[in-house]
Write a protein that binds this DNA or RNA. Structure first.
Length: 347
DNA sequence: CGGATTTGACCGGG
DNA sequence: CCCGGTCAAATCCG
């Protein structure tokens, strides 16, 4: 337990909460006669994905996490090459030598929805200061991809990076891929990151500045779970109202109205993806902020390597993936019980 | 002037 | 050789 940082806890809890929320929606849909099978399957997919991500976050093993983007790409125009679509026939032999991966940096994704149409700048402030170091046109993508690294890479040897890619289908969506965790110490007066990355507490505290962030015992996680779930639900509704999108419960209405529905489904999918719980602070009671961030955090971990997931996802993904993942996890834990994250010098 | 961004070159893996 | 990722010189900006 001790080697699981607060950041990981919150992120895992994030996934679990999301899964629970979606499960509730699915329950509602199942009892509703108007619910389409497609919708139900999508909800189920999301639930499985949440489990998958949570398990993956627990020990950084590869996974067949089903990305919402994949669904989105399938529903919409087939112009964006998503990594999950590969020919199943090409299942080449792969080695599971986990030993000599050099770039086993943890990777997770996030979707940020901009509210102002021009708002390319709104795609940003996640609490960390980034420095752009490159931009590339990506094959098959309309918008270029921007590369950022932590500002304190040289001064504090912080190797966190992120990539920002504007979505082809919905230009108000920015897909952000984070690689590596911040090992830097941000300025103390700065606003704590609204992302689950609440890491400053886990640094070797040469000087414990007033750490009101206590390490919550495992039970606290559950407490957080519940309390935040409530918050999240409210927030959920607020956003639904403010965006004047009837989503989730209204999907069928939108889609079955004779509309081609690909777009509305796309929108709903994006909303679904973005309506994940806006971050759960591990410091619950009396804590100053439940950062209800202006952007949504739908983080799900990614496979540091592409090798395994190829063959895993070649199988029909969802059903058998947990089993496979468990196997991987066991192996992984046996081989490498230490989490690379908790060592600040790791890179 | 100093730090951040831009942008083409460079590099390495597939 | 193509493509994605990074470097670094030039440029921008406060």
């Amino acid at each position: 337990m001790e080697n699981v940082s607060n950041w990981e806890k919150s992120t895992i809890a994030n996934e679990l909460i999301q899964g629970m929320e979606v499960a509730r929606q699915l329950k509602f849909h199942l009892s509703s006669s108007t619910s389409s099978l497609e919708t139900q399957q999508r909800l189920l997919q999301r639930i499985l994905s949440s489990y998958d991500n949570a398990l993956l976050l627990l020990n950084w093993s590869e996974s067949s996490a089903v990305q919402p983007q994949a669904v989105q790409a399938m529903v919409s125009v087939p112009q964006s090459p998503i990594s999950t679509d590969r020919s199943p026939g090409g299942s080449k032999d792969h080695h599971q030598d986990v030993s000599k991966k050099r770039k086993a940096l943890p990777t997770w994704k996030d979707q940020v929805r901009t509210y102002s149409e021009n708002g390319a700048e709104s795609s940003a402030d996640d609490g960390y200061s980034w420095r752009k170091y490159g931009q590339k046109d990506i094959l098959g993508a309309i918008y270029p991809r921007s590369y950022y690294r932590c500002t304190y890479r040289n001064t504090q040897t912080c190797y966190a990076t992120k990539q920002v890619q504007r979505s082809d289908n919905d230009p108000t969506i920015f897909e952000i891929t984070y690689k590596g965790k911040h090992t830097c110490l941000q300025a103390s007066n700065s606003v704590p990151p609204a992302t689950p990355e609440n890491q400053e507490l886990k640094h070797d505290d040469n000087h414990h500045h007033h750490h009101q962030q206590h390490q919550p015992p495992p039970n606290d996680v559950l407490v957080n779970f519940k309390s935040n779930l409530r918050v999240e639900t409210e927030d959920f509704k607020n956003k639904e109202a403010s965006n004047s999108f009837s989503f989730a419960y209204g999907i069928e209405n939108l889609t079955s109205d004779g509309q081609p529905s690909s777009f509305s489904q796309l929108v709903n999918e994006n909303l679904m993806a973005n309506f994940s719980p806006t971050f759960i602070s591990p410091a619950t009671s009396g804590s100053s902020y439940f950062s209800v961030s202006p952007y949504q955090m739908n983080s799900f971990a990614q496979f540091p390597e592409c090798d395994h997931n190829e063959i895993i996802s070649a199988n029909t993904s969802t059903t058998n993936s947990p089993i496979l993942d468990l196997d991987f996890q066991i192996d992984h834990v046996d081989l490498d019980p230490t989490f690379p994250f908790d060592t600040p010098g790791f890179f």
